[in-house]
Amino acid sequence: MEVKLGFGAVPRPQYVFVSKEPDHCWYMLAEDERRIPVYERALTGVITGIEVNKKVENTFGEVIRTDLNVLADKPYIIRSGSDTYFCKGLLLSLDILTFEQLRHPLTIAVSPGDKKVVFCNIYDPVTYPSIGVSWDGHKELDWQALGQKVSLKINKIQNSNQEIIQVSANTTTSEIHAVLISQSDTYLAQFNWTPEQGRDYLQQKYGKRSRLQLTDTEILDFIDYLKLQLTQNCST
């Protein structure tokens, strides 16, 4: 990306929002909050990060969003509702992509569906085929766990010098659980809990005596609790 010297706009990422309209499926916001339609269907760039299930304040109050960071002619952040078909299609596609594919530019495209639905398709901009995803059983999927898996996968690429467990498209459910247990170990090491205190908390909160017995959703909730307690302790 070329750096232009001299006066110019403040260097910050450009947010892109997903919304099905009569003649476009995503838009940007001007400084006065006016919507600027984006008529092109696709954005090509390198994926540099993702934040899933992010709490965001807007005019309707607190909402849950997913932000995909893409570096193209400038940094972009594609923001979508975490429970939308666009976001779910995005996660399914990113889950299938290999580490090698994610290191190269990809094309993220919007596709209008029925009513207000917008689908996400990811293409290889060199060979053109889209990443084929299956929606079979999507209603039973643990989307929070899938989002965590995809985040770990992309963070692995961006922090290749760090020693973390490899998460790929072929990672099993038990391996994902091992990653989550490992994450909770990191936060528990900063606590002064005895093993008995930890077991008591798990019993009261989840009705279980061991982290190994927790579901992926429960261990993610436990990790969020630990992070919150550490943040509060640091601020006091």
Rank of each mutant, 00 (worst) to 15 (best):
M1W: 01
E2S: 12
V3R: 07
L5E: 11
A9H: 10
V10P: 02
R12C: 08
Y15K: 11
V18K: 10
V18H: 11
E21M: 13
E21I: 00
C25W: 01
M28K: 14
R34Q: 05
R34N: 05
I36M: 10
V38M: 09
E40R: 07
R41D: 10
R41I: 00
R41T: 09
A42G: 09
L43F: 04
I50K: 02
E51K: 14
V52F: 02
N58G: 05
F60L: 12
V63Q: 10
R65D: 07
D67P: 09
D67G: 11
V70C: 07
L71P: 00
K74C: 11
I78P: 07
R79L: 07
T84L: 12
F86W: 08
G89T: 04
G89Q: 05
G89D: 15
L90F: 04
F99L: 11
L102D: 05
S111N: 10
V117P: 02
C120K: 05
V126Q: 05
T127H: 06
S134K: 01
D136G: 03
H138Q: 12
E140C: 03
W143C: 07
W143R: 08
Q144S: 12
L146T: 06
Q148E: 15
N159A: 08
N159F: 12
Q162C: 07
Q166E: 15
Q166D: 15
Q166K: 14
N170D: 15
I176Q: 09
I176D: 07
A178E: 11
I181M: 11
Q183C: 07
Y187K: 10
L188W: 03
Q190P: 00
F191G: 04
N192I: 02
T194P: 02
R199N: 07
D200T: 10
Y201V: 09
Y201W: 10
Q203S: 11
Q204N: 14
Q204C: 10
K208T: 05
R209L: 14
R211G: 06
L212G: 13
L214P: 01
T215D: 08
D216H: 13
E218K: 01
F222V: 01
F222Y: 15
L228C: 09
L228Y: 12
L230T: 06
L230F: 04
S235H: 02
T236F: 08
T236L: 11
T236W: 04
